[in-house]
Design a protein around this nucleic acid. Structure first.
Length: 478
RNA sequence: GGCGGCGUAGCCAAGUGGCUAAGGCGGAGGUCUGCAAAACCUCUAUUCAUCGGUUCGACUCCGAUCGCCGCCUCCA
């Protein structure tokens, strides 16, 4: 079987063939770091985490670049998001950027999202962005007006090929006032002139200013991954205009295709409408982590395909958690069986079972990363494993090890689920309190032998009990 | 107005031009168990928004209708 990927550019599933054998270059639009990440970000980055993990599983060498937007991304008001955030929190813009970049990575770590290989910041690549703008000017695809540079959409007949739009059919100024500097309302800014009070500004051939939003992705993608890359990912809402503009800029500058496969993930909804900053109906990832584990959130998201929207609700996340627990129990069951299994030959049933479910799982993943279906296979696999283990057919250590390795590879390596050791992180205090209350019950009954045994065993494990009047206290041995 | 997508059981959610329409949650019953828990077994959509059409055959393809969502220069 081969991997098939849904390409937004052609609107169909295509066989995945990387540009260079054995290696994949992927770029995903990263966050604008002006506020805490929310569940919508989780869906996007978990989706592409799966893409990267599965490509690794298939044996590809992957270079994964995901930008950090820290300049140039404007609000409707024309205000830079970063500057607005900095004002709100009364900090330096780059202090704000640092704060929310950290928050972003911490949230992603909690969701077991692997970090990209490179996380370039837009503000750290201003010279490269200026170079690209100069190239576009030189080639006649852009024009300068009063210190700002705009891309001339009329020079690029392909504009609209990704989103299927025609410039003439759009309602100019539907949402924003038309900028009178532009030759055509569809033209977009490559470089913006900065007013003196605009804190983030750089020298350029056109005076003091700052880069437009779209140019950063073209620049950094080309810098780290080459002029043509294998996969470019991002949220569906960025298909137009952001990705459309990226294509126009990049292809006009290089004369080469920018991206082979465009992938777009769908949105997280709340009561049927998009979760977004502007609607204020978002749950931040750290808020969600107070109620659910990162793994539970991850599993919830993976139970829906990346191209389908998912409605975030307490009920749905809880239901997902129940299912996840079932898969975790199976992993525990295998581990426990492994501890008491004896050496022996591999049982053919086990080898066949593993091969069967590995192949079924791969078949689903090969179909455009169909995680809900792959998870369905994992549930079936889990059921078969439990049957085998509870039949207690005296499976050999070797057999159980294959089960363990296969089950872990699919659930942990590919899906990023069933992390071991997470549950053991709880505090020991409640358990020590419990032992002490049991021991005090024994002391009441004058069952000194057992009571002393508890005290001695705790002492061996570094816990000292001191019986005071009315209560027993405990502390850790220094 | 333009572009794109969605509507599958009580809920979530895969899927296919024709074998029994995955899987999970919830629910019902059972096996196992000192009691639990876990696990396992059985049942829980004669039907895929509605109405037409194409076809030997459609939930799947086409058209219309209804409902919902996203985008049209702010968003993962």
């Amino acid at each position: 079987m081969a991997l098939y990927v849904y390409n937004s550019l052609t609107r169909r599933k295509e066989k995945f063939e990387p540009l260079h054998e054995g290696r994949v270059h992927i770029y995903v639009c990263g966050p604008t770091v002006y506020d805490y990440p929310h569940i919508g970000h989780a869906k996007s980055y978990i989706s592409f985490d799966i893409v990267v993990r599965y490509l690794h599983y298939l044996g590809y060498k992957v270079r994964y670049v995901q930008n950090i937007t820290d300049v140039g991304h404007l609000l409707d008001s024309g205000e830079d998001r970063i500057l607005k955030g900095a004002k709100r929190e009364r900090v330096e813009p780059m202090e704000l950027v640092e704060r929310y970049t950290r928050a972003y990575f911490e949230a992603m770590d909690a969701l077991n999202v692997l970090r990209p290989d490179i996380s370039p910041h837009a503000a750290a690549h201003v010279p490269e962005q200026i170079e690209l703008v100069e190239t576009l000017l030189k080639k006649g695809y852009a024009y300068e007006v009063n210190g700002s540079v705009y891309y001339d959409v009329s020079k690029w007949p392909d504009y609209g090929k990704l989103s299927g739009r025609k410039v003439e059919e759009q309602q100019a100024g539907a949402r924003l006032e038309v900028n009178p500097e532009k030759h055509h309302p569809a033209d977009f800014a490559l470089w913006k002139k900065a007013e003196p009070e605009h804190v983030m500004q750089w020298n350029s051939p056109w005076g003091r200013g700052y880069p437009g939003w779209h140019i950063e992705c073209s620049t950094m993608s080309m810098k780290y991954l080459g002029e043509t890359i294998d996969i470019h990912g991002g949220g569906m809402e960025n298909q137009f205009p952001h990705h459309e503009c990226e294509i126009a800029q990049s292809e006009a500058a290089t004369g080469k295709p920018f991206v082979k496969y465009w992938m777009h993930n769908n949105m997280v909804l709340v009561d049927g409408v998009k979760m977004s900053k502007s609607l204020g109906n978002f749950t931040t990832i750290s808020q969600a982590l107070e109620k659910y584990s990162g793994e539970q959130i991850r599993f919830f998201i993976l139970q829906t395909g990346y191209r389908s929207p998912v409605d975030f609700s307490d009920e749905a996340v809880k239901a997902a958690g129940q299912g996840l627990e079932k898969l975790q129990t199976t992993l525990r069951n295998i581990k426990q069986y492994l501890d008491r299994a004896k050496d022996g030959a591999e049982a053919p049933v086990v080898t066949e079972l593993c091969a069967k479910y590995r192949s079924l799982f791969e078949k689903e993943m090969d179909d455009d990363f169909n995680t809900p279906a792959a998870i369905g296979q994992l549930f079936e696999f889990s059921k078969e494993i439990n049957k085998l283990l509870s039949a207690d057919a005296g499976l050999s250590k070797e057999s159980v090890e294959i089960l363990f390795a296969t089950y872990k590879e699919l659930s942990q390596n590919v899906l990023g689920l069933l992390k071991e050791g997470g549950v053991e992180q709880v505090s020991v205090s409640p358990f020590i309190d419990l032992l002490i209350s049991l021991r005090n019950e024994l002391r009441h009954r004058k069952e000194w032998g057992l009571a002393d045994q508890i005290r001695d065993e705790l002492m061996k494990n570094g816990v000292i009990i001191e019986d005071k009047k009315g209560a027993s206290q405990w502390r850790f041995k220094e």
